[in-house]
Amino acid sequence: MSDTNTIIASSEGRKRRSWTFTIGAIIVGLHLAIGLMTLVWTPYDPAALSGGRLEAVSFLHLAGTDRLGRDLFSLIMTGSRIALTVGTGAIVIGGLIGMTIGLLAAFASKTLDDVLAAGLDILIAFPTLLLAMLIVAASDGASLQTAIVAIGVANSAIVARLTRILTKRVLAMDYITASRISGTSWIGVIRIHILPNIWPTLLVNLALQFGLAVIAEASLSYLGLGAPPPNASWGRLLQEAQATVYTAPIGAIAPGIALVSLVIGINLLADGLRDLADPTRRSRR
């Protein structure tokens, strides 16, 4: 009886998760499509003055205009591209650095492992945004690239710590010993056993980090440390709309919705991804 209940409950759980995956994929897909579209077409040139100052929402300007008279909808569309670019870049950098350090720590001697683990803990205790600000300040000046590198490096500590823990857990398993006994080299063990086993958890974490990277980029841009003009980052749009938030609230609401919808979409996608990558959670065939 209780078995039947568990099976029903878990199949409902799977259904719910695949549902979240679909919604997440649709939202992220929409942002991706819009981002790609801005490469060839936007309703107006996002940098040009296409209307009066602070125009209200109309069919001509779907999200009104900003205080200079630029079309906000076109700016927000371009913002999708920037958010996705920074998110992807940060995840690639954070993932590569983080996984390398994490694997290194898991295989290192006890002393080196302790040093690396302590270093990671300190990095993680350091606020991501503050770290990113430091990196931006230390480089030649704010640009899209510095934002990507800064957020990526800040993310890498979290990825490294997770990789280290997951790898150590897999290394303690009998099948690693069995594989070693049958003559697999350490490189082979990493390729055949460790990466496939840590990948599902790591993938979900990377997806969540993607969402955090999008928020971090908006925060950096809001502070003026992100992509400089004419890049229309959502964070900068929010900052520019701040002065006129009572007279033209749409200027803050529209980029806000764009930012929140992308982050929620990514989180839903992350939730659903885990089940696709892990066969033990997939329905039995």
């Binding site: 398993m173 009998d174 099948y175 010993t177 069995a178 594989s179 006994i181 049958s182 055949i192 056993h193 496939p196 086993n197 599902p200 892990d278 066969p279 033990t280």
Partner: peptide, 16 residues
């Protein structure tokens, strides 16, 4: 030499 372990569940890679 090759080894057969006590616990067959952990002796096999769950993701293969």
């Amino acid at each position: 030499a090759a080894v057969v372990f006590q616990e067959p569940l952990t002796a096999l890679d769950p993701l293969m």
